[in-house]
């Protein structure tokens, strides 16, 4: 993701962005749609500037990011451990399977009110919701990843004298990492959803709370500003996962490219 990009592509991307903003602005300027419903990009930008220049946003952003990161880490670790365990233990997997399927099929966002009752309106209930969302994404990918380990590589390691613990460390886990990372990209988004939905359903701080508050005042520009802010930080977190991924998966073959070939 953070590769050097072709400047022409970047130019076109910027152009698309400008066109989009211009179109948005035009909608209200020429009265095609009401400002009440779609807001005004300039006001949204001013609002964002306001939030940052007064510093009021940092507390809310800090809380939302804190919930997101904690839910992401705990949910991923839990998903990784349970995924490894069930994938390597056929009996446990057989026993747990109907419950996991049921829990996964359940629209878990509706757990938010239950968590609010259990853990109050503070950060804990949001983290709990985030964990339930993150866990399944990571769990299913780890499970799949371990199941797809090459049987030949496994047999080879056993012939070379690997114990069960050594197999886990040198074959199962490295082989599952690419699956884990593809799930982590989705998991970051899930952690964000958990935090923001949790805040939206009841809280006194966080970006979700800001959106809820703006909505209550029919302040569509405030809602948009919150949404844009969340999108931006979700992208940043995703990019961080991408960087870690590129570091850990540097052994993977990439699409071959030559140097100096005419475009």
């Amino acid at each position: 993701m953070f590769r050097l990009k072709n400047p022409r592509i970047v130019l076109v991307q910027i152009l698309i962005f400008i066109l989009f903003i211009a179109g948005w602005k035009a909608l209200t300027t020429f009265g095609i749609m009401s400002k009440f419903f779609v807001g005004d990009p300039f006001v949204v930008a001013a609002r964002l500037y306001d939030w940052f220049s007064t510093g009021m946003i940092f507390r809310h952003l800090g809380i939302t990011l804190y919930e997101t990161v904690v839910a992401f880490i705990l949910g991923s670790v839990l998903g990784l451990l349970v995924g490894l365990w069930l994938a390597l233990s056929p009996t446990a997997s057989l026993l747990a399977s109907p419950y996991l399927k049921g829990f996964n099929a359940m629209p878990r966002v509706i757990l938010a009110p239950i968590f609010a009752v259990w853990f109050g309106l503070g950060v804990t209930s949001k983290i709990a919701l985030g964990i339930t969302l993150v866990f399944f994404v990571v769990f299913f990918n780890v499970y799949q990843g371990v199941r797809e380990v090459s049987p030949v590589t496994l047999a080879n390691a056993r012939m070379l004298g690997a114990s069960r613990a050594q197999l886990l460390r040198t074959v199962y886990i490295p082989s599952a990492t690419s699956w884990v990372f593809s799930s982590l990209h989705a998991a970051v988004g899930m952690a964000f959803v958990g935090a923001v939905i949790g805040e939206y359903m009841g809280s006194s701080a966080g970006v979700g709370y800001l959106i809820l508050e703006a909505e209550g005042l029919f302040d569509i520009n405030g809602v948009f500003a919150g949404v844009i802010l969340l999108t931006f930080f979700a992208l940043i977190l995703d990019a961080i996962v991408g960087i870690v991924e590129a570091r850990l998966l540097h052994w993977q073959p990439r699409e071959a490219t030559t140097v100096g070939a005419p475009a």
Partner: peptide
């Protein structure tokens, strides 16, 4: 044991 298929650890 030298296997017929590729058995190296690609990582």
């Amino acid at each position: 044991y030298m296997f017929q298929a590729d058995a190296l650890m690609p990582w």
